[in-house]
Design a protein around this nucleic acid. Structure first.
Length: 302
DNA sequence: TAAGATAAGAGGGACAT
DNA sequence: ATGTCAGTCTTATCTTA
């Protein structure tokens, strides 16, 4: 899941090394040398499925590939709209009428049942979010799978499509280990956090999803890269979190808050200048939360 | 200006009724 | 099904260094 990029044109902004690494699972590019996260965006590294060459190896012959992220799995068929026969001669009037009706039924059968309409809308909405949140294909596939299961179980009926879609997305992120918070998703999908969490809980319960506990260590890298914190300080923060987990004070706490606090403590320890406010905004929590966590963390450390 | 303290309020889980 | 409780996080405001 972690791949070295060999032919990357970029080098690390911080240390200049060319040892960039992609994590396809979390959708991040980071420096293998100093750990600096260059971007949590990942380009589509899969094979280009279109080809403009004229040799016999034209890959476009295979089409776009099937995917559950498309409402018809990418296997749509369309009846040509030109009213000519195979030799190019115009059709008779009665044949034109027959084809017109066929086209109508063809398109109805594909996307006009309520379930398909719902899927079509949700999946196209999901695709827009993908770009905004820089999500990887594996997250999208998983999200689409979860959403389909939700539709099958009739969980979407009576709830807003975007809220269900957003929670499927969030669940997929959690399953895959891509660090995105509920707030990230709520903002980009224009859903209220409240609706999203409610829907998410429902999905987890009804679909029996096994969601791993969030690892605060992952969040350290994310926050640190946002405000530019040194690798040494990051390591110390990770160490602090490990101790916190040993002492079981991390249970039930907001992992983002914990990560931010660990970073804050390390910054103070290492003499690196960083205010609580900076960290709080980067982590999406409040300064008060950082202070509250700090009490607990400091107790463990001494 | 940054950090600490305090209070009020929201939302949800656990548990009892 | 409904209510209560402890615990968490947020927002807002005030004080301290």
């Amino acid at each position: 899941m972690v791949n070295q990029i060999s032919d990357i044109k970029q080098s690390c902004v911080r240390c200049g090394e060319k040892a960039l690494i992609t994590d396809a699972e979390t959708g991040e590019i980071f420096c293998g040398d100093c750990g600096f996260v260059l971007s949590d965006r990942i380009e589509n590294t899969g094979p280009e499925r279109r080809s403009f060459s004229n040799d016999g190896l034209d890959r476009s012959r295979v089409g776009a590939g099937t995917s559950i992220t498309m409402h018809d799995m990418g296997l749509s068929t369309v009846i040509n709209t030109t009213n000519t026969d195979a030799t190019g001669k115009p059709l008779s009037n009665s044949m034109k009428n027959t084809l017109k009706r066929l086209r109508m039924w063809d398109s109805r059968s594909q996307a006009h049942s309520s379930v398909e309409r719902n899927l079509r809308q949700a999946l196209s909405e999901m695709d827009k979010i993908k770009d905004k949140l820089f999500l990887s294909d594996s997250v999208m596939e998983k999200a689409a799978y979860i959403y389909r299961k939700a539709v099958d179980k009739k969980l979407v009926k009576g709830r807003s499509i975007s809220a269900c879609m957003a929670s499927a997305l969030y669940a997929a992120c959690r399953e895959v280990g891509t660090p995105r918070t509920i707030n990230d998703i709520a903002e980009t999908t224009n859903t209220k956090r409240k609706d999203l969490t409610r829907c998410y809980r429902l999905l987890v319960k009804e679909l029996d999803l096994k969601i791993p506990v969030v690892n605060s260590v992952q969040n350290v890298a994310r926050i640190a890269s946002k405000i530019g914190i040194s690798e040494k300080t990051k390591r110390l923060a990770t160490e602090i979190l490990r101790k916190a987990e040993e002492n079981e004070i991390s249970a039930g706490k907001d992992p983002m808050g914990l990560a931010a606090t660990a970073l804050y403590i390390s910054c103070v320890e290492m003499g690196e200048y960083c205010t609580q406010r900076d960290l709080a905004t980067a982590a999406g929590v409040t300064e008060v939360t950082i202070r509250n966590r700090k009490k607990g963390l400091l107790e463990v450390l001494n």
